[in-house]
Design a protein around this nucleic acid. Structure first.
Lengths: 204, 204
DNA sequence: CTCGCGTTTGACCAAGTGGTCAAAATGAAG
DNA sequence: CTTCATTTTGACCACTTGGTCAAACGCGAG
């Protein structure tokens, strides 16, 4: 399944260049709205040269998606059954918010893909993602059953963390337009607001 | 500014047909990912015939966006200073959730546009949208100052209502994939969850 | 019935699309 | 400094794209 990683220095460098460029382009225009020329130009490579490293536009996108799915799910994986429940969930929320701040392009790449029906990652959602969410939802359910968190649907709780945190990356233009130029960085306020929200929601 | 409305029966019918088709196509593929051919086929018109009613792909998109922006903001406009605060906000949330259920394509159309940097509606966001949000945020701020709602940043409160409700339209594929086939309609649970969330958040 | 205006269309175009290929340039190992 | 595999490129291709246009169609008022 997994191909042997790039050997030569040049290969490593160019594959990294292409990934970077493709991330920018795909996250801005979506798959169908992006062109190989755009990606090549952004990576400072000629189009045939780019296609020497990846056989097709599809392949670039697949490469990006699978290498990103890993890191994207990491924060949820770290949610620890043995930790203090509220603190675990607040930490998860903060990690996700941090990712929206530090990796907005990655967030938008997923957003684009999913809004447009996730044709290229639908399987991953139904297997890998579903299994992880189900597992963690049951952990949260356990905490609630033990009276350590106020009761609520744990699946929708997870959805709400995703939607609230990713909103600040995916809809960043809208957030900035509404808050205006005197509030160029919404993240500090967002963190305060979201901490309050989930604390009030989950405190017994 | 506003063109005289369609005169003949045929014009009305075809403009409606095109709008319908364009909504489906644009909301699924984004602006750059959509083609005039697709829209024409979806509307059962030939491409030149479609371009007889709208001068360009851009024009169709603009027409859609401006006629939608209206209805999209209506629920927020109805938030009434004189009403019972918590009830007003819960009603707003429910209306937005209802729109996600009943008009997911409209929601995705906006999502696509904004995720991709809102190049065609940026002005509207900074003027029309910002003014409305500022106005309503100050109303909410007043309620909080009067001790009728628990304190919280009203702008981020509005963002959170948007993000949470639209999530069920925009990321519907993901939600359905995670919940699995035995839970084909997430909306009833979503409404319960969100009602609880905002009640706990805002009750003094 | 027929005339004119609104409507529809097939054929067409230039530009852009994803992708190929043979040939040229370049690097690293001996 | 040679040699050979790796890397890079210009030219090219078939197809799709947004958009045009002249000609044909058809509906309703007189």
């Amino acid at each position: 399944m997994t191909q042997p990683v790039a050997r030569t220095r040049i290969q490593r460098k160019n594959i990294a260049l292409i990934s970077e460029a493709a991330l920018s382009v795909f996250s801005t225009w979506g798959f169908r709205g992006s062109t190989v020329d755009q990606i090549a130009k952004e990576a400072n490579l000629s189009k045939p040269n780019l296609l020497y490293y990846f056989p097709s536009k599809e392949a670039i996108h697949q490469h990006l998606m699978s290498s990103l799915m890993e890191t994207w799910l990491d924060p949820l994986r770290e949610l620890d059954e043995k930790g203090e429940p509220l603190e675990e969930i607040l930490t998860y929320m903060r990690r996700k918010l941090q990712m929206s701040r530090d990796h907005p392009r990655e967030s938008r790449l997923f957003a684009n893909e999913i809004v447009q029906g996730a044709p290229r990652i639908h399987d991953m959602l139904e297997t890998e993602l579903k299994e992880l969410v189900d597992e963690k939802a049951r952990v949260i359910q356990g905490w609630m059953a033990d009276g350590r968190l106020a009761p609520a649907d744990p699946w929708h709780l997870i959805f709400s963390i995703w939607s609230l945190t990713q909103h600040y990356a995916d809809f960043d233009v809208q957030v900035k337009a509404v808050l205006g130029p005197e509030k160029p960085d919404p993240f500090p306020d967002a963190e305060t607001y979201l901490s309050t929200l989930f604390t009030r929601m989950l405190t017994v």
